[in-house]
């Protein structure tokens, strides 16, 4: 277990190194001079140069990179050109909102899809299975933002159950915050359900045909015990990967959905940063989103170890 965790952390460090490298390279290779962007097209050669040296842009690239990375490690991500505020502060403000949305969506998806997948598997090729599969396919066959619009139309406009969008901090108004969270999280969760459900179903089917399930039946165990105690704990292991992947995907989907629901999260921030060529902010957003991806996968790896004793006890001797 110790080795396992150490190795995963090692992989994360290496991945992070490449992410910073790419984030830095891409934003520096892209056309457009930061100084020019700040000062506008009418700036003089001299003032441009002065600003460049002030920002350190005339130093060799590797020095700039090292500088940036050292800053990152210290929690200093530079200053946003557009907002004139520290990037770290901008992100710190918006990240929790996006995380809240992504977590809520993943939670809704898991709560819906795992029981559905199990139910479909134990009724293989019968009505419940077919219905659940159809439901899942409908969910997966439309892009997330479209589900957002459908949810707004049905639950906000027609049924008038929830507000159409906006964000309220849960610390200010918990109920208001949750009612505003409901629609975007529901739409995204619904879209994520399909894949997790299909995976749960096929994983359950595989496990249910294992010899140890046969033996459990031969021991006189009831169907309920067999499904919940013997099968699910085995079947959930591959599903965890999918859930982690879907969480990352939800985080990506956030960009569009935040637009639709006026949700001031990291997605909207990234979009603004790109539109305004706010290079420090773009870099900051890339690194943070990459970190989220990595941590969700790391969490999946740890969950594996929790569910699978062969990993937990393997490799540390």
């Amino acid at each position: 277990m110790y080795n396992y965790v150490v190795r995963r952390v090692g992989f994360m460090a290496v991945t992070l190194f490449f992410v910073t490298l790419i984030a830095f390279a891409v934003t520096n290779i892209l056309p457009g001079d930061v100084a020019l962007l700040i000062l506008g097209p009418n700036a003089t050669e001299q003032s441009l140069e002065a600003l460049q040296s002030q920002l350190g842009l005339n130093r060799p690239l590797y020095v700039q990179y090292i500088d940036w990375v050292v800053g990152l490690i210290q929690g200093n991500m530079g200053e946003s050109l557009r907002f004139g505020e520290p990037v770290a502060q901008l992100i710190a403000e918006r990240l929790p909102r996006s995380l809240m949305l992504a977590f809520a969506a993943t939670f809704i998806a898991v709560v819906l899809s795992v029981p559905l997948g199990v139910y479909a598997a134990i009724n293989q090729n019968e009505a419940p299975d077919v219905t659940a599969s159809m439901f899942a396919f409908v969910g997966i066959s439309m892009p997330i933002f479209l589900w957002g619009l459908v949810f707004i139309l049905v639950f906000a406009v027609w049924l008038n159950l929830f507000p159409t969008g906006g964000y309220v901090s849960p610390s200010e108004d918990l109920v208001g915050s949750l009612t505003r969270l409901a629609l975007p999280a529901g739409a995204m969760g619904f879209a994520l359900t399909a894949y997790i459900m299909r995976m749960t179903r096929s994983s359950m089917l595989e496990v249910l045909s294992e010899e140890y399930i046969n033996l459990a039946r031969a021991k006189g165990m009831s169907q309920r015990v067999i499904v919940l105690r013997h099968a699910l704990k085995n079947a959930i292991i591959p599903v965890i990967t999918v859930i982690a992947f879907q969480f990352s995907y939800a985080f990506g989907g956030v960009v569009v959905l935040e637009e639709v629901f006026f949700w001031p999260g990291i997605g909207k921030l990234t979009l603004t940063a790109i539109q305004s060529r706010d290079i420090p902010l773009i870099q900051g957003c890339i690194v943070v989103v990459a970190l989220i991806y990595m941590f969700s996968n790391f969490a999946a790896d740890l969950l594996y170890a929790y569910f699978d004793p062969r990993i937990r006890y393997g490799g540390d001797d």
Binding site: Y212, N214, A216, K233, N234, D308
Partner: peptide, 10 residues
């Protein structure tokens, strides 16, 4: 088959 007849997570 002793290898596959015991539940690996129990």
């Amino acid at each position: 088959d002793p290898m596959s007849s015991l539940n690996p997570v129990m």
